[in-house]
Structures are given as C-alpha cells and as structure tokens.
C-alpha cells in the first residue's frame, strides 16, 4: 500500500512541474501533504494507538490544511494568476522531473539501507520529490511559486523522515514541522511586502543588487 502512495506522489510531482497556474500547484502541495500524512498508517506497527494518530492528525492539519489555506490567502492578496514567463517551459520541466527521478534512483542505489524497510522506493521517491521542489524554485519566476517549491522540498525531506525513522523521538520531528510552518509564514509576509513595494512579485526583475552590471546599465 506504501508503494501506491509513493506512486501517487511521483505523479503529483510531474503534475506540479507541468502546471504553470499558481492555484493548481497549491492544490498539488495540499494533496502531497495529505498523502505524506497518511504514510505512517501503513508502516509495520512499532508505534501504535494515540501517538500514531497524533502524528497523522498534526501532519495532515499543517501540511494539507493550514499552509495551503495561507498560500491561497496570500495569492488572493497579491492577486497573481499564473506564471507569465517561467524560464523553463512546462514540457521541458516535466522532462527535468523525470531526470530528477532518474538521478534519485541512481543515488539511492549507491546507498543501501542498513535495516529492513517496508518498501525499497522510499529513499528514491523522497529524493525525487525534494529535487523537484528544488527545480521549481529555480525555474519559476513568481515569488509565490518559489515558496510552493520550497514547500515541496520540505515535503520530500519530511517523507524521508517519517517513512524511515518513525521511532525517532517525536519532539524533534514536530519541532522541524513547526520551523517549516514559521518559515513559510515569514516568507509569505515578505511576499506581501514585495507585492506592496514593487507592484509585482516577479523575482526575475528583482535583481538590483549585483556586482556585475550589464553593459547597458553600466554607462547610465
């Protein structure tokens, strides 16, 4: 059953790379959060009962409900519809998604897991989710889609943590969740300031600070 969820996650990756509409990618992030939240239910039960329920509930609450709501609220405040001109077209980004999956499998083939684990695909899928998140930050121009990319990167890491190391002391796991939560909030607030100051949130035009001035700007 865990393999099913992992397969769903890979599909969601490719879908998020394909779509240029911000609202669509927020929805993808919400589904990914939900999927990752459900993974602990299917793991062989070393931890049962109340603690398991607590983890699932908190993860679902934060990753599937609060953060997507906040991002949608930010999108309405900044009223940006879709990516006008992303650096990499939709089709090429999907190709990059597949390439990311390939590299993830190649790297994890070099890293045999020392203990028995429910499915061999956890490490490669986690790596590919975070590589996709990385790639979204690089290829998208809108500030909000960069925040979404960062969130996908966090999801990949969180999946890796939850799936392999469930018995780690929970306090640290939740601490990490809290930090991500606050991180997204601060980024959101900065996006508000950017939209108010610059009247646009296109980060490609946000490159005033530099040591290298292109010829045209140097002589003005």
């Amino acid at each position: 059953m865990v393999d099913g969820i992992l397969m769903l996650l890979v599909l969601l990756n490719l879908f998020s790379l394909g779509s240029t509409r911000i609202s669509a990618s927020i929805r993808v992030v919400a589904y990914q959060g939900a999927a990752i939240g459900l993974v602990p239910l299917f793991l062989p039960g070393k931890i049962t009962g109340g603690i398991l329920a607590a983890i699932v509930l908190v993860t679902l609450l934060v990753k599937a409900v609060i953060l997507p709501w906040f991002l949608r609220y930010a999108q309405k405040r900044v009223n940006v519809r879709r990516e006008e001109k992303p650096f990499v077209g939709a089709s090429t980004s999907i190709l990059f998604g597949v390439a990311a999956l390939g590299t993830a499998f190649f790297i994890s083939s070099r890293l045999p897991i020392p203990f028995a684990v429910v499915s061999p695909f956890i490490v490669p899928v986690a790596l590919s989710v975070s590589l996709t998140g990385f790639f979204i930050i690089i290829s998208r121009a809108e500030a909000l889609s960069q925040v979404v990319g960062y969130l996908i990167l966090e999801n990949g890491i969180y999946l890796f943590g939850i799936a392999l190391l469930l018995e780690q002391p929970l306090l640290v796991e939740l601490g990490m969740l809290l930090d991500v939560f606050v991180g997204i909030f601060v980024m959101g607030i900065t996006v508000f300031h950017i939209s108010r100051e610059f009247e646009h949130t296109d980060t490609s035009r946000l490159s005033g600070l530099a040591d290298w001035l292109p010829e045209v700007r140097r002589n003005e």
């Binding site: 960069q146 490159s207 290298w212």
Partner: peptide, 28 residues
C-alpha cells in the same frame, strides 16, 4: 564577476549543482 549578477534563480542553481556534483562524485 558575472557570477554575482543578482538573479536569485542562478544562485539557487549554484547550490543544487554543488550538492549534486558532490553526491555523484564522492558517495561510493
């Protein structure tokens, strides 16, 4: 000096390339 030309995406790309290069080269 073109390396520091102000675009955030290029900066994040530096980090990704550094990470992937080290992983592919060093981990075996």
């Amino acid at each position: 000096r073109w390396l520091q030309q102000g675009r955030l995406h290029i900066y994040i790309m530096y980090i990704m390339t550094a990470l992937l290069a080290l992983l592919l080269w060093k981990v075996r």
